[in-house]
Design a protein around this nucleic acid. Structure first.
Lengths: 152, 152
DNA sequence: TGCCTCATGTCAGTATTCTGACATAGGTTG
DNA sequence: CAACCTATGTCAGAATACTGACATGAGGCA
């Protein structure tokens, strides 16, 4: 009923704001991907493969921020439906290099365009300097959170 | 096996970076909350209630970025375990104002401290100006994504 | 060479979240 | 007043992601 515009302290938390922004981005992506019958993870996998052909299941999982088990389930479905291919035998080790099929590439095209338009909308209110600031600041946050701060 | 430092284009995408940062934050939060037997959504719910007592199930859901069905499941568990209380009858409409119990408040204390330390670590590499920039930029992104851009 | 550690792919079970649906309360509008 | 419309709480089922576990291949090291 109420719109709750009070805002106590969560409104000043950058962590909360980060979660809010990420949630808004995900919702916007789902909205444009749904008509294409594609989920966000589904799209992420295809986009990763387009830009870095031959990624293994585990590498795809890390790139899409899911576990390798989750990515494995998705890859099996994508393989079954003819969007990607994996060799039956690993050329080295156990890692199976995955590649997009023409069908996968075609399917990605529309999705990629839709997602890029979402990203463009997200950045609509920012100038170049702000985009650069955002890039640098987000990278710093990631760095700090992961504990890569041993240099001095 | 490989560390994949090449980076093609995803490395320049602010959307991808936002997801990466949010994922890192969530992972860091899970890491410190796990020893306390608390999930991120669990913590979010308690923190919301501490700062805005009397929020309804639907309001909590919006604040924690989940559906009201998901929050309902969580609230029933929290109520069963004595962390929150809800009146049996709605004072007005159907909304049931939820409040923390002393036990819930006590449980939140440690979790809140842990999460605040994570947030502090996240911001360690940033100065005040950068924090303000981040705040303003993230709010702009949220605003644009939600389509609140009808003013001129 | 043998052993140890790590990363990978995969299977199975569990947990979490979501979508769909329904009934009810309150405000709005004719 | 009556007919809507919106918001809410809740139940049920489906989708999604995760944890646990196991076997295998590669590289390091004694």
């Amino acid at each position: 009923m109420r719109q709750e515009g009070v805002g106590v302290d969560l409104e000043t938390s950058l962590g909360y704001l980060l979660k809010e922004a990420s949630s808004a981005l995900r919702a916007a992506m789902e909205e444009v991907l749904r008509p294409l019958g594609m989920s966000v993870t589904h799209y992420s996998c295809l986009e990763l493969l387009a830009q870095r052909p031959g990624l293994s299941n585990s590498e795809l999982a890390r790139g899409a921020f899911v576990t390798r088990q989750t990515m494995n389930v998705l890859l099996q479905a994508l393989e079954r439906d003819g969007y990607v291919t994996r060799p039956a035998e690993a050329p080295v080790g156990k890692a199976l290099p995955t590649r997009l099929t023409p069908r996968g590439r075609r399917s990605l095209e529309k999705a990629s365009a839709a997602v890029r338009s979402v990203e463009a909308r997200m950045l609509a209110g920012l100038n170049e300097t702000e985009e650069e600031d955002a890039f640098r600041i987000l990278q710093s946050m990631i760095h700090s959170l992961r504990g890569d701060n041993e240099g001095a």
